[in-house]
Design a protein around this nucleic acid. Structure first.
Lengths: 343, 343
DNA sequence: TTGTAAGCGTTATCAA
DNA sequence: TTGATAACGCTTACAA
């Protein structure tokens, strides 16, 4: 800028220089006192007084530049409207708050181009690290992930060889939990409403469903399987299509948003839940408990995954040389009224 | 630090110096080319080539320090789990993305100390501006608000004299819309489940309810009014208490979370909705449409408020001398099955 | 303990 | 068009 160094900032707010001048000490002394390192009693007193008098507040950006950290951690999820991500976010926030970090939330819409662009933007170092939960993992992801100069933790499946900290759920087993439960309750005509098969969770849940059905010696009639996206409206529409074609005595849904949509479709169609059709969702979000009847749901441990991911990330931010780690969270089933539990 | 100036950054990543050295030009020329201003054809070519070769990416923090802006806008809401705030956030994001800003979301929990601390932290200038939607407004808020060196827009009621950009809904009239609708449908024993009366929206909705009832010549039996917080669980519990005491033929709820809770309580109690009891919520969130029956809800224009707030904020960031503005968004009623509409 | 000055990585000014 | 250099506001190494 070439402008002569003034005490105050360009916008007139006090800087260390302002405080130092007022206290009659050097900026170094002022800075030290302000950071609680050293200083004679007299210096401390005068700097504190000066700082208070002018209402000095350190500039976060300047401090970031010097410290080489922003104090920000990014969280990239597909859909911020899905309560499962809210739960995860809360768990992450609780952990990172302890290290003085703030959460920057990105909603990616599951868009591959957007996600990789986000990963590439990490090179700008606008955050100290990122937790990302991609529902599709492409080569572009893997490339951007490994090239990132900033620590990244992936929540979700990732190819074995990718050297990135990783927390994964087991939705395959989760779906099995749901199927086992329904079969044990005597249901045999089990429908399945899934998300897109070209997504990692969609593929895993499809495989899990088919494996579990096979294990029970139950054939999977193509007419009883429907696919939409992971949203309420798609779930409802998919369930409607399914009910048009078949007469299931149970429906497993790939997440709670879909399950709530399916419940809607069932009730509109005049089916009693669980008497005529049992229903099981996945993610075990608040939505499952807010519905009537309450919806049984497979918990994939969203809060725990968030907590673990945050821990991995903070560890790596503290020490970038750590070997990549991989954590697993086991699924569990919350049985509620929609599948015959206690209402 | 006293360390000799190296070309690469401390972490080994390329800087403008790296690029300049490789291209054989000054950092000034390199910077200019990188920012697309001037440079001879030859210089441009060499700088571009050097930048590509070393994989140069500008450092966001250094840029922020120089530009005196972070590119970040904070959004502070009470509860990120409430879909109404998700809708608002999406609307805001759509606007601020256009000016290259990112959203930093804070969940305040409606905590006064936390909110004022947040406002005071603005002095650190870690964001370019903030949109805050406090459910309580104290003197501490007003003080922090007016003292903020960074533009702030308040979504919600604010004392007239506070010179801050402000977007407000009219929940008083909104509640009237609900009551009018129920009265027109022949309901007379109208219950009300509200949030805390010491919150701004809680107080406005209480006043609105009483005024509307009075206008219709209906007495407000204290037994038909319940108060909890603005959450699902509280709404359900409050509705249960209300049903223990009285036999309403309609219930108005202060938001959709409460309405979903009340719906649950009604169905558990064996009431038919809307035949026995009509139900109207507020905020017109996805939740209202996802319920069965779908819940009529008063829209307070959350997306529109978010959009307006973002516009006000961007305008003020561009020109801090603007006179404070105040925008109003009118409520409207979405009639659905829960109050006798088409199912 | 204190002050001087370098440096964080960038952009902008100004003279050549 | 170009380069030297100051400046953004802060922390810290080093010498006094």
């Amino acid at each position: 800028m070439g402008r002569k160094r003034l005490q105050d900032a360009a916008d007139g707010r006090p800087t260390v220089h302002t405080v130092a001048a007022r206290a009659g000490v050097s900026i170094a002394s002022a800075s030290r006192v302000l950071n609680g390192i050293g200083g004679s009693a007299e210096t401390v007193r005068r700097v504190r007084e000066a700082a208070a008098a002018v209402g000095y507040v350190p500039n976060a950006i300047a401090r970031s530049l010097q410290a080489q950290r922003t104090g920000l951690i990014a969280l990239a999820v597909e859909d911020i409207g899905n309560p499962v991500y809210v739960a995860m976010m809360r768990a992450i926030e609780a952990v990172v708050a302890g290290s003085g970090h703030q959460l920057l939330v990105h909603a990616t819409g599951g868009n591959v181009a957007g996600e990789t662009a986000l990963l590439r933007r990490l090179a700008h170092r606008y955050v100290d690290g990122m937790i990302i939960s991609p529902i599709r993992v492409t080569d572009a992801h893997v490339e951007a992930l490994t090239a990132s100069p900033v620590p990244v933790v992936v929540v979700g499946q990732l190819p074995e060889e990718v050297p990135v900290d990783n927390v994964r759920a087991d939705s395959r087993t989760g779906i099995a939990l749901a199927v086992d439960h329904l079969v044990a309750a005597g249901r045999t005509r089990i429908g399945f409403v899934n998300g897109p098969l070209d997504t990692v969770p969609g593929a895993a849940r499809d495989a899990g469903f088919r494996a579990a059905m096979a294990r029970h010696g139950l054939a999977v009639d193509p007419a009883t399987v429907e696919v939409g996206d992971f949203q309420y409206a798609a779930g409802r529409a998919a369930a409607e299509r399914l009910l048009d074609r078949t007469e299931p005595d149970a429906i497993v849904c790939a997440n709670d948003l879909i399950a709530v949509g399916a419940l809607h479709a069932l009730l509109v169609a005049g089916r009693r839940v669980p008497e005529d059709v049992a229903l099981v969702g996945m993610d075990d979000t608040e939505l499952a408990q807010m519905s009537f009847p309450q919806i049984s749901s497979v918990s994939l441990g969203s809060a725990e995954r968030g907590q673990l991911a945050a821990g991995l990330l903070l560890d790596r931010i503290a020490d970038g040389t750590l070997a990549p780690r991989r954590e697993h969270v086991a699924p569990s089933l919350a049985v509620r009224a929609s599948s015959g539990g206690v209402r």
